[in-house]
């Protein structure tokens, strides 16, 4: 006898909502204002400054400097959308709460998603702060910006990157920690997604990886929105962003159950 669809939906909803409410309080270390200031205000400033002065030293043109500033302002969102989300299972292992969670009948996808949703807001705040730094401190020109399209692109980029975070987080169900994979992903993102230089500058075999990561399309859409590109020209990168985000999300859902089963088989659920 299985569970009825209605019951499944209701319980998944409760687990999603409960995890959403809980995610911002119980499972992250940013529970005091100083942590917030560091993550939202200092982190993007530090990263943008590093690359701004680096490309200034390397003699980039002003338009390329702007390219780098916008790229890094958006890329910093991966600290929250990918790194923090990937850390969900690892932090539960570390706190010893993973077994208590996995012994509940809760839908795993809704449970982890609920905990991750809060990070959409966090990652948006980080990127918006980064773009404000770009405007006020680093000379990014927003005079032609299409703000509704910019907002849409930022939200979709954040959501798509959360999918990547979820995918990496599922690995933590089986491996000791998902954080190493998340760390590697942060640097792969910097390298291949067009953050500091166009994807076309990469070898063609590496571009395959670029176009598998939603951040690449997100950056195209965001840069286009800031430059005031027509809505029609933004439809393609936004559609690609949405599609890769959905594909990665699907993988994450599928892998959650597989990795949980593997951890039950290997007995590594609590190993951290």
């Amino acid at each position: 006898m299985g569970v009825s669809v209605r019951q499944w939906v209701l319980e998944s909803y409760r687990s999603l909502l409960g995890s959403m409410k809980f995610g911002s309080k119980g499972t992250i270390i940013w529970d005091s204002w100083d942590m917030w200031v560091l993550e939202i205000a200092v982190l993007p400033l530090a990263q943008i400054s590093f690359f701004y002065f680096l490309v200034g030293y390397a003699g980039y043109s002003p338009s390329m400097v702007e390219y780098v500033v916008v790229g890094n302002a958006v890329q910093t969102m991966t600290f929250s959308s990918v790194f923090a989300v990937a850390n969900i299972t690892s932090s539960d292992k570390w706190q010893g709460t993973l077994s208590s969670l996995l012994v509940t009948p809760a839908n795993r996808a809704s449970m982890i998603m609920g905990r991750a949703i809060y990070q959409i807001i966090m990652s948006l705040m980080i990127s918006i702060t980064g773009l404000l730094y770009g405007y006020f401190l680093f000379g990014v020109n927003f005079s032609s910006a299409d703000y509704p399209m910019l907002a849409l692109s930022l939200v979709l980029t954040s959501m798509s990157m959360i999918s990547f975070g979820l995918l990496i987080s599922t690995i933590g169900l089986y491996m000791r920690t998902a954080l190493i994979v998340a760390n590697i992903f942060l640097f792969i993102g910097l390298l291949v997604c067009g953050v500091n230089f166009p994807v076309s500058a990469l070898p063609s075999w590496l571009q395959i990886l670029s176009y598998a990561i939603p951040l690449t399309y997100g950056l195209q859409a965001i840069r286009g929105s800031i430059a005031g590109a027509s809505a029609a020209s933004l439809i393609l990168p936004i559609s690609q962003l949405l599609l890769t985000g959905i594909i990665v999300f699907g993988f994450a859902l599928g892998l959650t159950n597989s990795f949980e089963k593997l951890s039950r088989k290997s007995g590594k659920m609590e190993v951290y």
Partner: peptide, 19 residues
Amino acid sequence: LYNRVSGLQNLLYFSDLYG
């Protein structure tokens, strides 16, 4: 247990997870 939240919040969260 989730140490950064209250005992009550721990119980309410697990109530949600158990549906």
